[in-house]
Every structure is written in C-alpha cells, then in structure tokens.
Design a protein around this nucleic acid. Structure first.
Lengths: 100, 100
DNA sequence: AACGTTTGGTTTATGTTATAAACTTGTTTA
DNA sequence: TAAACAAGTTTATAACATAAACCAAACGTT
C-alpha cells in the first residue's frame, strides 16, 4: 500500500494558532484574555496570530465592551471548523503507521 | 477540566521532517531517493531536513554505495522513535476536544 | 485631581525556519 | 567524448513565529 502524505494547512500547522483553534473548537467563542491565559502566549504574539486566523476567515473577531473595558471576542466560523477537521484528517496520514 | 497544551517538538512539527519520520517509523530504514519520491520533496530541502533530524539524533545517516552509485541510507534511532511518540502524544492535547 | 498602575491590546523588530534554486561530483549512455 | 542523468550539498530568499516596545483607557491612591 502506498503511503501518501496530505499537505498540512500552514495556517493551522503552527503551535499557537492550532491551540487557539483547539480552544474555539471546544468553546466556540472566547475572550482574548482567556485565550491568552489558556495558551500561555504573550499578548503580542496572540494578537498577530488571531489576526491571521481572522484574515483567513477561520475565526471572527468582535470588539465589544465589558462594562467600560474593551473586550475582544473570538468565535470560530464554519469555515474554521471545516479547516480544522481537514487538518486533523491530513495529520492522520503522518501519524497512522501504515499497515501493509 | 483545564485544557493544557503540551509544547510541540519544533523539530518534528514541520511538514517534511514529520513525513520523513513517519516513513522511517514504518520502514525503519530507507534510501534518500525513496524518501524523496514518497514525500515529493526537492532533493535540497530533503537534504537539509535530514541533516537536522540527524544532528538531533533522531535518525542515523549511513553513506554507502549501490554498485558504483552513492547511496544514502536513513534509519530511525531509538531516540527518534521516542520523540515521535512523544510528539504524537503532545498533539493529542490540541486535537482531542476536551470533555467537560 | 493628579499620579502611578493595571488592563487590553497593537505595532514593530528580530531571529529562525522552511524551501527552492544553483551548484558539484561522479556515472551512464549515445 | 560529450551530453544527459543521478545523487546529493550549499547557498540564498522569503515567510514565519515570537517577543519587545509601545499605546490608550480605566482604575485606584493620596
């Protein structure tokens, strides 16, 4: 049996972005500080990576307020969910030890 | 339940190197041109990535001859196998949708 | 009420990394 | 013997991840 490696979506194949998506797959929507805390990322790094996910349409960012403080909400999109599922599927071609 | 993301070994978290390791997990030893063909990588890229895996002690490279032609053999090491297993384990913290 | 501190981020700079392009060395084939 | 091919290596470039520096508003303190 031929082993075929499926290409890995470079947008998802990055530790922090993958972590963010993983959180949003589980929770659907989350606030910036929560994501920051859960991932252990710096705010700057997180901000950049969220931008990329947002530009790709994998997540949707909503700026609101919580009382008087700004509050950035991130929500995964349908496309994001699809992309994540496809990424997981593609990964399997690398991880499953191919049987004869 | 708290979600904790385990760090991903940067040496393995790279498409081509992961593919190489995946092949060697399955076959243990393989020739350079075979790996090249299976992964679809360019020779240059493959050469560089094999060097890195070799420097890390994840694989062992043996230069021999096949008739008169040079032949580069790659074999996974025990450390490489361990690292691969650990990487797969770490990945799970990103892929498994954490249950409450 | 003014001053420092904290919160919630964004922008910019830097160092790494992946990758391809160009090159080398030797072998086969016409 | 000259051209084409095989098997890689070295070098250059472009993208990327990440942290450091920065900014603005709100809060707490004196």
């Amino acid at each position: 049996m031929e082993k075929v490696f499926q290409p890995l979506d470079p947008l998802l194949h990055a530790e922090l972005r993958l972590a963010v998506m993983s959180l949003l797959i589980a929770d659907e929507e989350a606030e910036f500080p929560y994501i920051k805390e859960q991932t252990g990322a710096t705010a700057g790094n997180l901000s950049v990576q969220i931008d990329k996910l947002s530009s790709a349409g994998y997540i949707k960012v909503r700026k609101t307020f919580k009382g008087k403080r700004p509050c950035t909400l991130c929500r995964i999109t349908a496309n994001g969910q699809k992309a994540f599922a496809a990424y997981v599927e593609a990964l399997k071609s690398y991880l499953e030890v191919g049987e004869k």
